Amino acid sequence: MAIRIVQFLAIIISALALIPSGAHLAALPNKIALAQAEYFSIQGIYYGWAFLGTLWPAAMIANGVLAFMVRSQQRPFWFALLAALCFVAMLAIFLLWTLPANQATENWTTAPENWQVLRQQWEYSHAVNALIVFVALCLSSLSVVSWRPGAS
């Protein structure tokens, strides 16, 4: 029963992590060419979204725990482990590209000279992370459907 609970949590938390990432990806084509004033104004819609960032480490942990719990079965183990590693990659991308853009612009309230470069960095790092979280969700789901109770 514990494995089923962790499987459920891994899928649900991974799916929830896809929501804000998917929203960023969907908005990218409409935002990437906006003028500075419009872009900075629209960025204000993300205030309060920081708490959604907790879904990434939560999904990483849930998938890591799942990998540990199903380690006796090769396919479910590797799928869950790769899902967890996807969330590690997402966090790395956030720390290397998204967060520095947020910091340099003071969360999009100050426009440094290179704001357009920072905008591309911010938008495309979110787009890549949306694709990664989708892959992670697929991997997590594959882990669950490939696990066989009682098999070793």
Rank of each mutant, 00 (worst) to 15 (best):
I61T: 10
Y47C: 05
A84D: 04
A23H: 02
N107Q: 13
Y124D: 02
W56H: 14
S72F: 01
A136V: 08
A136F: 03
V6D: 02
Q36I: 12
E38D: 15
A17Y: 06
L99I: 07
A111N: 10
V144S: 04
T98I: 11
A2R: 06
A35Q: 15
S152V: 14
A17D: 14
V133F: 09
W97R: 00
T98D: 13
S146N: 00
L28S: 01
V70G: 04
W115T: 13
R75G: 01
V70Y: 00
L81W: 02
F79S: 00
A111E: 10
W147G: 04
R4K: 11
L9H: 11
I11Y: 09
L16G: 04
S143N: 01
N107C: 02
R71N: 00
H126D: 10
L28H: 06
E123Q: 00
N114H: 05
S146G: 03
P112Y: 11
A83H: 07
L9N: 10
N63Y: 04
I11N: 06
P29D: 01
T98M: 06
W97K: 02
M90K: 03
Y47D: 12
L95Y: 12
A83C: 06
A2N: 03
S141V: 05
N102Y: 05
N63F: 02
I93K: 00
I32V: 14
M90F: 03
G44S: 04
P149C: 07
L85W: 03
G48R: 05
T98W: 03
A15P: 12
F87C: 08
G150L: 11
A23V: 12
I61S: 01
A27P: 01
Q7P: 09
L85M: 07
Q36G: 10
E123Y: 05
W115Q: 12
L96V: 08
A58F: 13
C138A: 13
L137Y: 12
A17F: 08
A89M: 11
I3F: 00
E38G: 09
S125I: 01
V145L: 00
T54E: 15
L137C: 10
G48I: 13
A59N: 04
S41Y: 06
I3E: 01
L9R: 04
E38A: 13
